[in-house]
């Protein structure tokens, strides 16, 4: 049965107001076939559920260490780590002001005498860890956090349906994002069909990197595609995203032919794709497609940087920068000259 298909989701955002019309619920699929160096959802890259550890939340109670069935966790005092020359960046939480209540209370506890010698850090032997999540369930301070959870489609449909009154009142619906939702296309298709049965507006936020067959299957149940267009030059596209753009561009052509409703999203990155050459190429390509008129520019930002650290992934966008205000205005002007509705 379709509703028993499973998929891995790493986040569900309610009151999503920037992912299509009206008030939306956005589901983030875990796993992406591309590796864009500016990726701002690094937790969406791997398809596997992960368990990550946030030392700034840790109160050093050791409950995770005690409960781990694989004995993959050990507890270290901060001093030991510092002395042994390990990455001491984790210790900066001592000086950081904590915003969330959880962090604030963790901070209070650290100073209330429960942990005497400096502080502690839990270290995981990644080879032993079986991702069972027992530590997450046990951790009192959410320092051990599960990223990515396997859901049945039926469960997700229930979650989506919970906010039905909001979609109805505001003309909203659900948006499937990621990662790359088309990578788990069977589940996506079941979800899209399920939403259509419930008369819920659907949007798919995609890189377009999927087989033609998948696009054909999902298109009839997708009310709106939010389709990324990154770089027109194939060599540069390969350089920055790890894959060729050939399939992406032809899928966009296919959607235009099918008469799908599409909003183009261009992540605008200074000196990567904000040059005249690329913008002209984008403009003329889009102008050649029937029915595709709307373009959203998403200027690059580096708010994602801290996430990389948490996930232990190397951040490769250190040298990238945001386009300037005037650069954005120029890009809007340039693309608009192709008869497109461009906004930022």
């Amino acid at each position: 049965m379709a509703e028993n298909v499973k998929c891995t989701i790493f986040d569900i955002k309610k009151y999503a107001i920037h992912d299509g019309p009206g008030i939306r619920t956005t589901l983030f699929f875990k796993g992406c076939p591309m590796s864009c160096i500016w990726c701002h959802n690094p937790e969406g890259i791997s398809m596997l559920p992960e368990v990550v550890y946030d030392s700034s939340r840790c109160i050093g109670c050791g409950e995770c260490v005690a409960i781990c069935p694989e004995k993959a966790l050990t507890i270290h005092s901060a001093f030991a780590m510092e002395n042994s020359g390990n990455d001491t960046e984790d210790l900066t939480f001592f000086n950081e002001t904590s915003d969330s209540v959880t962090e604030a209370s963790a901070f209070v506890m650290k100073h209330s005498g429960s942990v005497t010698e400096g502080s502690v850090s839990v270290v995981k032997n990644k080879i032993l860890c079986a991702f069972c999540g027992e530590c997450v369930k046990r951790c009192p301070s959410t320092a051990q956090e599960r990223v990515g959870k396997v859901f049945r489609v039926a469960e997700l449909l229930q979650l989506i349906e919970n906010d039905l009154p909001f979609y109805e009142t505001s003309g909203g619906g659900v948006t499937f994002s990621g990662g790359e939702p088309l990578m788990q296309w069977k589940a996506l298709l079941a979800l899209l069909k399920g939403c259509k049965d419930l008369d819920i507006h659907t949007a798919v936020d995609t890189s377009g990197f999927a087989s033609r067959d998948v696009i054909r299957r999902v298109a009839p149940y997708t009310d709106l595609f939010l389709f990324d267009l990154k770089i027109m030059d194939d060599n540069l596209h390969r350089k920055y995203t790890g894959v060729s753009n050939e399939m992406i561009l032809s899928n966009l052509e296919l959607l235009a032919l099918l008469g799908a409703s599409v909003i183009i999203r261009i992540p605008l990155i200074h000196k990567v794709n904000d040059d005249d050459k690329n913008l002209n190429a984008c403009g003329s390509f889009l102008a050649s497609l029937t029915g595709i008129k709307d373009v959203n520019l998403l200027p690059f930002h580096d708010f994602q940087k801290s996430k990389y650290k948490k996930f232990g992934i190397t951040y490769r966008a250190e040298n990238l920068s945001s386009p300037t205000e005037s650069g954005i205005a120029d890009a809007i002007k340039k693309l608009s000259s192709f008869g497109l509705n461009v906004n930022c």
Binding site: I59, C61, E63, T102, S105, A106, M109, S112, S114, K137, C139, P140, S141, T142
Partner: peptide
């Protein structure tokens, strides 16, 4: 919750 930090965390987060 002095001396019961882990319990407090469990109550608050779970």
């Amino acid at each position: 919750f002095q001396g019961y930090e882990a319990l407090r965390g469990r109550l608050w987060n779970h």
